[in-house]
């Protein structure tokens, strides 16, 4: 019948159980070690929280005792810095954190940047950005030459923007085309004003994904000075750009100029007509009614529905108030 390797399978299963037993011992030992680390970190926090408060407020200078001696104490210092950066912050505090991190924490992160473990490298990159550690720029740039994941690459862009904002777009415009739009938006939001202005100025040279992200950010920033620039983009042959522009203008929360509404309603793209219909919320009722009657038989169900919803809204007290606003 079938050749039955019972003994072989038996020993195979026993071997696997042995491996699992070893893994269990390893896991529990690792947990114990982790717990010891956490206790050490807690003890550091208990000992030094008040002194850190004094140091970060500039009342006293950081003594050698505050310098972390190992990973556990490093974790405690990270907690303190994160808490101050998130909850208190302020330029002076940031400066002091940066100074301390550059001198005393850099060796830890330099080592982590070389780690084979992706999450260790990512954590190091996050900290370099959070604590503004300029001393590690050289190490970060060396990392650029290696094969990196998309997450690492994005983090490198954030660090580059933070430490070398001037000429950021010229240096990176081509490479930034690989970002997702979400990442591009994040980058644009973090840009200092002059870099952002430069980016807007080179709009035509940007990859589509960056163009889309930039338009969204312009809408979110609600900077009325950019209205003319956005309006010019309505001449684009890319319907996605036109749709994004209309959405950005809608996000401004102003009464949309008639010329923009006309262009939206004349568009063969239903999304543009839909956004036009949505913009009618901020148009006085009689004018809105004129557009509404024109769009009532639109071929797109969503446009018709938006027009219908508009009529209902404008009859309600809330809607009247919104129009007045």
């Amino acid at each position: 019948m079938i050749g039955v390797p019972v003994t072989a399978v038996f020993f195979g299963v026993m071997l696997l159980f042995l491996v699992l037993a070893v893994m269990t011992v390893y896991l529990f030992a690792a947990r114990d070690s982790q717990e010891r680390k956490m206790k050490k970190a807690d003890s550091y926090l208990l000992r030094n929280s008040k002194r850190w408060y004094q140091v970060l407020r500039g009342i006293e200078t950081a003594s050698q005792e505050l310098v972390p001696s190992d990973e556990a104490e490093l974790a405690a210092v990270e907690e303190i810095f994160r808490a101050y950066l998130t909850n208190v912050s302020g330029d002076k505090i940031k400066e002091r954190i940066q100074e301390f991190a550059d001198v005393h924490l850099a060796p830890f992160y330099r080592k982590k940047l070389k780690s084979r473990n992706w999450s260790e490298r990512m954590n190091a990159l996050y900290r370099i950005e959070d604590f503004g550690m300029e001393s590690l720029i050289g190490d970060v740039r060396r990392l650029e030459r290696k094969k990196l994941t998309a997450d690492e690459r994005f983090q490198l862009h954030l660090i580059d923007l933070q430490f070398r904002p001037d000429g950021f777009m010229e240096r990176n415009a081509t490479r930034l085309g690989d970002l997702s739009e979400y990442e591009a938006r994040q980058l644009f939001f973090l840009m200092p004003e002059h870099v952002f202005n430069e980016t807007v100025a080179m709009f035509g040279k940007l990859a589509p994904v960056l163009q889309y992200g930039l338009i969204e950010v312009l809408g979110m920033r609600q900077d009325l000075m950019r209205l003319r620039f956005l309006e010019e983009l309505l001449d684009s042959s890319d319907p996605e750009i036109r749709i994004r522009v209309l959405r950005a203008i809608d996000a401004f929360g102003i009464r949309t100029p008639d010329r923009i509404l006309e262009r939206a309603f004349d568009s063969p793209v239903w999304e543009e007509r839909f956004l036009g219909a949505r913009m009618l919320r901020r148009v006085p009722a009689d004018e809105a009614a004129r557009y509404a009657s024109r769009m009532r038989d639109d071929p797109s169900w969503l446009v018709r529905e938006e027009i219908r919803a508009l009529s209902v809204r404008q009859r309600s007290p809330e809607g009247k108030m919104a129009v007045l606003r």
Binding site: N117, M122, Y182, R185, Q186, F189, M220
Partner: peptide, 20 residues
Amino acid sequence: KRQRRLDRRELDDQFIDAFY
């Protein structure tokens, strides 16, 4: 294994912003 040590709070902080 790849993600085991990642500090997920950093990611959470990034995504919590309503802009993104």
